[in-house]
């Protein structure tokens, strides 16, 4: 089986290719959009992930370096508002801000799925236009509004209908690279405020689509959307 044929002759195994991770660029983006649009396809990707998961049994082990667990514990403390002793790159920052603000900063750096607390914003002059979107339901329900301030890197959304029990509503941006990037979970029963990482912020531009999917509680375990899309809308500059 070493003959070369055009890809069109080959069987459609896109779900397996996505689960295996061999796709990139436009092919991957198309496959990720199918996960959003086709429940059967999404289920097929899940099934393949479980199949390939069997290979983890033979993956060679390697003991983690010392100190990693302590770092993880400090990050968890920061998530839960326990203020860590200032160290490393933080003392200079700590000199300028209250201890509580440092705690918040670490909290934000760790990028929890939901960041409902206000962020100490860098003092940047707001010269870029705001981007707004009306994120409308694909089936039924109420639309929500999104406002993104590029100068501050803050995205705010109005309160969405709460998902079913043990489910979370996850927000995605599909921008210039045509690939869904998670922006975190919508705050159940309240407004949502997100400060995306710089790499994701680049996708938040006029014309980009914001979408909300229903995921397992805590968000998509794979980093890509797995559930149905319930709300969708495009960003416009104002």
């Amino acid at each position: 089986m070493t003959d070369i044929r055009t890809p069109d002759d080959l069987p459609d195994v896109t779900a397996a290719e996505l689960a295996l991770g061999v796709l990139e660029g436009e092919e991957r983006a198309v496959a990720l959009r199918r996960v959003l649009a086709e429940p059967g396809f999404a289920q097929s990707v899940e099934t393949w992930r479980e199949y390939f998961g069997q290979l983890f049994a033979v993956w060679p082990e390697a003991a983690a370096p010392d100190g990693v667990f302590e770092r993880i514990e400090r990050s968890i403390d920061a998530l839960h508002g326990v203020v860590p002793p200032s160290r490393g790159i933080w003392p200079a920052v700590a000199g300028l801000m209250s201890v509580a603000a440092v705690g918040l900063l670490v909290f934000v750096v760790a990028r929890p799925p939901q960041a409902p607390l206000p962020v100490p914003a860098p003092s940047v002059v707001a010269t870029q236009p705001l981007l707004v979107a009306s994120i409308a339901p694909t089936a039924k329900g109420a639309a929500i509004a999104a406002v993104y301030d590029p100068a501050r890197g803050v995205l705010r959304l109005t309160t969405a209908e709460a998902p079913a029990a043990r489910r979370s509503a996850e927000l995605w941006v599909i921008g210039a690279d045509k690939t869904p990037h998670s922006l975190g979970l919508l705050t159940p029963g309240g407004a949502t405020r997100v400060t995306p990482a710089p790499a994701i912020r680049r996708q938040l531009a006029a014309g980009a689509t914001l979408a909300v999917t229903i995921e397992p509680e805590g968000g998509s375990p794979t980093g890509a959307p797995t559930g149905p899309i319930v709300l969708k809308g495009d960003l416009t500059a104002v």
Binding site: G53, Q54, A57, I76, L79, R166, E215, G219, P221
Partner: peptide, 26 residues
């Protein structure tokens, strides 16, 4: 990875995936 595990372990469903597959996939 472990920070993600900490935040998302509540969504783990034993009936859907073996624990090591769930962890290793992350």
């Amino acid at each position: 990875v472990y920070l993600t595990v900490w935040k998302r372990a509540g969504a783990y469903e034993p009936s859907r995936a073996s624990p090591i597959t769930w962890l290793a996939t992350i």
